[in-house]
């Protein structure tokens, strides 16, 4: 293709984005757009799959059969989300194996929130309420993202996530209406998960390297800071209903701005975890890598068996 032809295609592409048209896998797209999408979608898929670990850790210990079933179903939904998202990324010409490889080698990131340990039952409630709550805010914005397969996957995922969030909140509501010990468990979980949840929206806008281009291509529809503010404004009243205290002495309603002011996020902690040195980064990666490596012989067997069946069929027909 000549330079002029590419320029022409780029103009058509930009015009389609401007008209809010969806870009489909077979459409021409700039290489950078393809790469950005692969990065974002695979990162999201990895987050779902790594996110299964802290909650999966509580399935055998869930305090009632009803909670156990709900938690299993939730973790299963996350596996399902991982599947749709990997499939959406595959339409851009990358295989699931390659994406796994990037995850295992540390080249691809996943949401840092899953590098925090889930140490009590109240964490199952708090993860649902705050982590899924924050994820929904990010994801609702993505339902109108410009890449068609991603946008469609997000519509379905958002429905399930909002169910998870209500389920998490309900766990906490039960704890907060329970004994002193249960309420203390809920408060402790909020203390530990609040700040990491705010970090889920990423660095402040001025320091977010991908935001500008992502906004331009409508991969992202709102900035990190806008989304974070929306999350805080929506979550504070929910904490009030629970009767537990958000661990931020600077949190205060700002009548003029009609939003909450909040304290300084510990960005050193954020970068430490992003760079791989959070409380569970190593454990999460070890768990994923060993699942993959220990599953090798199983996947090989499934392939070999499928080939044998295929050959047999050909022979029968022949």
């Amino acid at each position: 293709m000549t330079e002029n032809e590419i320029k022409n295609l780029e103009e058509i592409f930009e015009a389609r984005i401007a008209r809010d048209e969806k870009i489909e896998p077979k459409d021409w797209m700039p290489e950078k757009y393809r790469k950005s999408n692969i990065r974002q979608i695979s990162q999201h898929a990895h987050s779902e799959v790594v996110g299964m670990l802290p909650e999966g850790n509580w399935i055998t210990r869930a305090p009632s059969l009803r909670r156990k079933v709900a938690l299993l179903a939730k973790v299963q939904d996350e596996a399902g989300h991982g599947l749709y998202l990997y499939s959406a990324a595959e339409t851009l010409g990358i295989s699931r194996e390659e994406m796994y490889e990037q995850l295992h080698s540390g080249k691809a990131k996943y949401s840092s929130i899953f590098n925090y340990p889930a140490v009590t039952w109240a964490d199952m409630g708090t993860i649902g309420w705050l982590v899924d709550g924050a994820a929904i805010i990010n994801q609702v914005a993505l339902c109108s993202t410009s890449f068609g397969p991603y946008a469609r996957a997000m519509v379905r995922i958002c429905k399930e996530e909002s169910f998870h969030q209500r389920q998490g909140y309900e766990i906490l509501l039960t704890l907060c209406r329970g004994t002193q010990e249960q309420k203390a468990m809920a408060q402790d979980a909020l203390n530990r998960w609040w700040w990491p949840s705010l970090m889920m929206f990423g660095p402040i806008d001025a320091e977010s390297p991908n935001t500008e281009q992502s906004m331009k291509w409508k991969l992202k529809r709102k900035t990190n800071d806008e989304l974070r503010q929306q999350f805080i404004d929506q979550t504070v009243p929910q904490a009030e209903i629970l009767g537990i205290t958000i661990p931020d002495p600077d949190l205060k309603w700002n009548e003029e701005k009609k939003q909450y002011d909040f304290g300084e996020i510990d960005w050193d902690e954020f970068w430490q975890v992003v760079k791989g040195h959070g409380p569970c980064n190593k454990e999460r990666m070890d768990a994923r890598v060993s699942a993959w490596e220990e599953g090798n012989w199983v996947r090989d067997a499934a392939m070999a068996y499928a080939e044998k069946q295929h050959d047999k069929k050909l022979k029968d027909v022949g």
Binding site: G56, I59, T60, L72, V75, Q76, A79, L83, G295
Partner: peptide, 21 residues
């Protein structure tokens, strides 16, 4: 229930979770 997230593929994780459910 111990296996969820540790299986050889997402598809088997989903299927075994279904059975557990």
């Amino acid at each position: 229930g111990e296996l969820c997230g540790h299986g050889p593929a997402l598809e088997t994780d989903i299927a075994l979770t279904n059975i557990a459910l």
